[in-house]
Every structure is written in structure tokens, then in C-alpha cells.
Design a protein around this nucleic acid. Structure first.
Length: 111
DNA sequence: TCAGTGACTGACC
DNA sequence: GGGTCAGCCACTG
């Protein structure tokens, strides 16, 4: 497409998040960087805020750069995000993913 | 139409 | 080594 609509950014974010393998997590910054907008990590967060209308988007697999579940309150409860991650085999301590670096998935790494 | 806000990040002091 | 600041862009009032 010759022109990138603002909403396309959201759709691309969703697309990247959907590619995150089960049992892995990624970061807002990684997604933003992958889309060529590393400085716009907040936009990824905003996209996640709007991702509620996209059930296919595993937003719980997106954390900040240190593996902290900063967006957990947006899941309808402070423990929902943690529970979802634990069901995928993660261990959450103090709102942080244990061994975050080991489960970190970089967009484009699956290829 | 304008200004403020937000699930972040990197750089600077 | 730790805290503060600015930047990015879309949505809402």
C-alpha cells in the first residue's frame, strides 16, 4: 500500500502480537521497533488498550522492557493477565515475568 | 479545533 | 547509580 493509515499501525501491532508464540512474551518497544517506530512504544500501549475489541490479540504476552505487567489492570482485573501468563507456563513474581530474557520473543524471530 | 492523556523508552543530568 | 525529561502518535472531551 502506498500510504499507511494511522489505523494500519494498530492493525500491524495486532498482527505482530498474534505472531507471539505461546509461552513467549514480547515488549512494547520491540513491537514498535519492528514497525519502525521505536520511539512510539506508547502507541503500542495505546493499541493494546484498543485491542479489547480484538479477542484474537494475546495482549497479555506484551509487557514492558523489563518484563513487568504494567497493563494488567486493563484485563478486567489485576490478576487476569498474570493468570493467563501462568497458564502458558510463565512464573510471575511481583508483577514481573521470571526469566523474562529467556522467554522474550523478538518480532520476526520465528522466521 | 485544541489541549490533555496514555498498558513506553532512551538519553541526559 | 538513580531520578527526571522529552518524544512519539492516536483518541477523547
Amino acid at each position: 500500500m502506498p500510504q499507511t493509515k494511522p489505523t494500519d499501525f494498530f492493525l500491524r501491532v495486532y498482527e505482530v502480537v498474534r505472531q507471539v508464540p505461546e509461552g513467549r512474551v514480547t515488549t512494547y518497544g520491540a513491537i514498535a521497533k519492528y514497525l519502525g517506530m521505536q520511539r512510539s512504544a506508547r502507541l503500542v500501549g495505546w493499541a493494546m488498550n484498543a485491542a479489547h475489541s480484538h479477542p484474537d490479540v494475546p495482549a497479555h504476552r506484551v509487557v514492558n522492557r523489563i518484563g513487568m505487567l504494567t497493563g494488567k489492570h486493563h484485563f478486567g482485573g489485576p490478576r487476569v493477565m498474570q493468570q493467563l501468563l501462568e497458564e502458558e507456563g510463565h512464573q510471575i513474581i511481583d508483577d514481573q515475568v521470571v526469566g523474562f530474557e529467556s522467554v522474550f520473543w523478538k518480532p520476526g524471530d520465528d522466521v
